[in-house]
Design a binder for these strands. Structure first.
Lengths: 144, 144
DNA sequence: TTGCTCCTCACGTCACGTGAGGTGGC
DNA sequence: TTGCTCCTCACGTCACGTGAGGTGGC
């Protein structure tokens, strides 16, 4: 399939697929007539993995290492294992923190909509929302 | 307090605090003798808000708009309200998706550690983890 | 004088975003 | 010929990262 078809199926812009390809994360064949990139179904699976790994905070070069390891193009897996579990644990912590933040904001919004909340100006509501976000019960950017 | 003291208390690098200040998100006074930035307690609160808002996906210029609105430096709050709720909803969706992804990975790891899992090579485990991530039950990068 | 903290350029990086100008098949 | 999809530079952007070289107070 062409770059645009792959991009459409993965739900990302085509120029990003070209960028990932340039980075070596995807290695499509080339049509000898017009030099079009020719992707296969495995590239779609690979691309979906790349997108999900990115949401977990892996960099493109880390994702490249993981994919190369799975492709059997690397000698040792110890570093990859380390990398995976470290990021996984960090992602778990970030998720917990994000859930608490979301909850605090939801609570603040509930208070707006509660009876009596209508007496407050929009600006005061905004300030209250900010205060809700500021409420100190997680450790911030962490100690990585 | 100085830029380094503020940075330390917020848990981020000092050069990032300088960058945010340059962007207009923080407006410290300057020591007339040595031109040092002089931050106050309110700047720490502001900085913590900036960091949390960033984890939710707000850009620096969006955060600037929100802070200016709360500072009463803007005429209409309708756009801000829109911005806040749109991003909040998107963050909620991303969170749900991230939780499902985390769960799938945890399940895959449990299978590794289950009896009989030891018979599988490290590389096969890695490939299985990738398969777990690929498992199709969320909509990917969304339709924004 | 020495060491420390702060300062301002200025250039680099990562992951894209956005054209400009050109090719190939219906 | 026209419109469409693809191509390759090439330059821009966002949020930093990383020095280099200089100032001010103990």
């Amino acid at each position: 399939m062409t770059v645009n078809e792959l991009a459409r199926r993965a739900g990302i812009p085509a120029h990003v697929v070209r960028y990932y390809t340039q980075c070596g994360l995807l290695t499509p064949a080339r049509n000898s007539r017009n030099a079009y990139r020719e992707y296969r179904e495995t590239d779609l699976r690979r691309l979906r993995f790349i997108c999900k790994a990115k949401t977990m905070g892996f960099t493109l070069s880390e994702i490249d290492m993981i994919l190369k390891a799975a492709d059997d193009e690397v000698s040792s897996l110890d570093g990859i294992r380390e990398l995976l579990f470290r990021r996984l644990e960090q992602h778990r912590r970030e998720l917990t923190s994000a859930e608490r933040l979301q909850q605090r904001i939801m609570d603040a919004i509930d208070k707006w909509n509660a009876p009596g909340g209508a007496a407050v100006t929009e600006r005061a509501k905004l300030v209250r929302l900010i205060e809700a976000v500021l409420c100190e019960d997680d450790s911030g950017p962490g100690l990585t």
